[in-house]
Design a protein around this nucleic acid. Structure first.
Lengths: 245, 245
DNA sequence: TACCAATTTTTGATATATCAAAAATGGCTA
DNA sequence: TAGCCATTTTTGATATATCAAAAATTGGTA
């Protein structure tokens, strides 16, 4: 895979410390990224051999990567053992949101304590780019930048475990959100929640920051849920009754 | 592996729905259980081929299971790519505890809403067995029953995502706790936190239940941390300086 | 006796082979 | 034409083969 996949994957500076990136590691990172970015629709099936062929590697490391994503809930196993992107029920979506809420709150509280001037500046910039992308209808970009915004806050919490847990929850809703998002824009809102969060962080007010980030989470969630039935311009080639899950 | 590993692994009633348990699935479940039960000490190295030989299967599914545990943080990769049980730093341990706290609180709040009479009764019984095991010095049993106690509360929350996330955090501290536990007994305490929690759940008071479970978490944690330097009766065959991590 | 370097062995990572189960295909019938 | 069953193909799961890197061993030396 040396000259094959390496192009699109970051090669960490040769620290010669941590174990070298394995093929399965790279495939995992790539798939995870693609799921986060909404490159797979809910219900999409993943074919191990096909992915392996795409990367020009053997199925073994691909299977390992896929099964790790299954373990995390980012993929699920169909009857015939085939992996596919889960189709979240509303209930599951809400479960995930409610689990995220107290974690997001904690992360923001800690971020309010630890965040630096530079990071605040980065947040402002990310939000600016977020609004811009949304206004121009670049939804994927908007989602990606929004994600960067939130992840920066998580990392500012200085709690690596917390960051990991929250990121894993993002992964679960990635495909779902990307699928729904075009319907849900609110960047144009006069006083976007992000701005309030930034303000609270700057004033180093943990409780406010925590409260506001949860509000942001919930408001976004309500918007998405309220548009759930809406049809998107995308192809809808479902066989028979699309019910399924 | 049919006649090999099946003995110690639960065979779910043939529902013929969900994908059949694969070898890697079984190995994963087994290793996870063993980690939770403290059958591997922090720092212990896992040898894929050796495990495969023990189960009389090929290394492929074992590697898959091991790498899943690495992904979850339950194991880590040494320089030479070998997997071992992480040796938690105090900082990491506290990180995990603080991440668990709001999740435990939420779980208990939800449990206070959903829990049934029967489950309350089970909690009382589990606590009784916990006290008993601790009094008799059966530490492993005590820890296992304590875990059952807490997991029952999580499940009562009716939020599967929440349960999963918390259980994954337990997994991270499993080896550490089991290693430290013999030093930390408090079941004899007159009014054990568990009893207060049960009472709050019974009265269906979410805020109290949440508050009390976090108190239980923190108190247990303080006990463990305060004994960190203490030597245990166990073998201490560390080479050179046992520092390492 | 303690230490070091060369050699051997072990190990993890990946590719390939194999097999049974699932999916797709195609032709046949109503 | 629509539906169904048998055949073929594909697929996932596991075992085995292979190779390079790491670890262990050994023999020699200071």
């Amino acid at each position: 895979m040396g000259s094959r996949m390496s192009a699109d994957v970051i090669e960490p500076a040769a620290r010669e410390e941590v174990p070298r990136d394995s093929l399965s590691e790279r495939v995992y990172a790539q798939l995870r990224l693609e799921l986060m970015m909404g490159m797979y629709e809910p219900g999409a099936r993943l074919n191990i051999r096909r992915i392996a062929a795409n990367y020009d590697i053997s199925p073994t490391p691909v299977r390992e990567a896929v099964m790790q994503l299954v373990r995390e809930g980012a993929l699920e196993l169909k009857l015939g053992h085939q992996a596919r992107v889960p189709i979240l029920s509303v209930r599951e979506y809400i479960e995930i949101r409610e689990t995220r809420a107290p974690l997001e709150r904690l992360a923001s509280e800690l971020a309010a304590v630890h965040i630096t001037k530079d990071e605040i500046a980065s947040l402002r910039d990310l939000h600016r780019r977020f609004v811009e992308a949304e206004r121009e209808g670049r939804w994927k970009d908007a989602l990606a930048v929004n994600q960067e915004f939130h992840f920066l806050i998580y990392r500012s919490s200085q709690n690596a475990t917390l960051v990991r847990v929250i990121e894993n929850l993002w992964l679960l809703i990635g495909p779902f959100i990307n699928h729904q998002y075009p319907l849900v824009q609110r960047a144009h809102i006069e006083l976007h929640p992000h701005l309030l969060v930034i303000d609270a962080l700057e004033r180093k007010s943990p409780s406010e920051a925590g409260e506001l980030i949860v509000r942001d989470l919930r408001e976004g969630s309500y918007l998405i849920l309220s548009h759930l039935g809406d049809e998107k311009g995308k192809k809808r080639r479902g066989r028979k009754s699309g019910a399924g899950n």
